[in-house]
Design a protein around this nucleic acid. Structure first.
Lengths: 201, 201
DNA sequence: ACTGTTGGTCAACGCTTGTTGGCACCAACG
DNA sequence: CGTTGGTGCCAACAAGCGTTGACCAACAGT
């Protein structure tokens, strides 16, 4: 498990073990796994298909990641890299957040994989929930007036952002996919801004 | 249930066939299928498990619905029964719509099944898209100022409503599940109202 | 009462899945 | 040199999947 962290290079805090001969294979597996999970979800992303994409034998996946669940856990470790809302003007937090989410969603297929898997897989749903709780919630706390309302406000923000991601990147509704990036930011920013800072209606 | 009537009338429009001896079994299969699809998604909702819930043999499912895909199509035919926005005051369309969606989502597991399946199954995604296009879009047309903007506005409304359904009923985030029905309506209604009627930002 | 249709069970098929253990290779180290 | 341990492929396993066809039981029409 700690080996996978070094392989992802997404999060490698200290513990730099010297490179192994199999590192190329490990990252190839991880890359292929992310693609398959993002495209097909948990059940249909078979180990055989992932191994085929990575041009290695399925048994290698088991050797390096233990099981399919272990592979998913290693492939979907993720850091949102949310900006610090304390240092952005209070009236711009909505726009900043929406824009950042669009960036991270389009540069990286891990979130798509996470969402697609989380809908039918308990481990995926828990991981997604963990991201909201440990990465989004603290940022919401910085921006909202009453700390006790932070969980509800975070839930509202998550509902709008995940909803747009769902319709645009997962279900791929034509109307949602046709929206320009600027239009999405212009429409969603006031919504998120209100969820974060407005008085309870 | 009355669902047997709707099921038969779908496959047999006009000519009302007299009740068959197997109608009880047919509806038992459909009910079990909806529950399993809603709880597990397409792949993990196996025909054997559905047949087990309905206390019949898996081969009956094949006999009556042809294949797993046919069963899903029969189980997830759905009418949103959206209200006529032409006869509601223009400033209340957001609240009306959000409230109606919460009603329909909680009284019926078909939408949960549809969303869970649509994320990993092309047929499910298309069916969901069809519902948005054929049932939500016409209603949005009634409420929005410029007809040409209707598709974009429908996409925005769908993103917020499906996002709340996703986090609350599918992923079951504790923060989203903890929101009261009234709080959701109060927070989401202005958002939907704005997506429907506000000028382009 | 006989017959044809319908409702239902059972056992099996071919296939795919995650997972395992054995065997060959290659590099390093004594 | 030989040994050792990491790297990779291969074949196979048991289990589960959707699907099929044979076969029996109960009803309906004549």
């Amino acid at each position: 498990m700690s080996e996978s962290a070094s392989a992802t290079s997404l999060s490698d805090p200290g513990a730099a073990s010297r490179p192994r001969r199999s590192d190329a294979t490990r990252t190839a597996i991880l890359t292929a796994a992310r693609e398959r999970f993002a495209a097909d979800g948990y059940e249909r992303a078979t180990i055989r298909a992932i191994a085929g994409d990575a041009r290695i034998d399925p048994s290698m996946v088991m050797r390096y990641y233990g099981s399919k669940e272990g592979l998913f856990a290693a492939a979907c470790a993720f850091d949102l890299r949310l900006p610090d809302l304390g240092s952005t003007p209070p009236e711009a937090v909505g726009r900043t957040l929406v824009s950042h989410f669009l960036d991270v969603w389009e540069e990286n297929e891990v979130l798509t994989a996470l969402l697609r898997v989380g809908v039918t897989n308990a481990a995926g749903a828990e991981r997604m929930q963990g991201i909201v709780k440990e990465q989004l919630l603290p940022v919401v706390r910085q921006a909202c007036p009453d700390q006790r309302e932070a969980p509800a406000r975070a839930a509202l923000v998550a509902s709008q952002i995940l909803g747009m991601a769902l319709t645009r990147y997962v279900l791929r509704f034509p109307y949602a996919a046709a929206l320009s990036r600027e239009a999405i930011v212009d429409w969603l920013a006031p919504t998120v801004q209100r969820y974060l800072t407005a008085d309870k209606p």
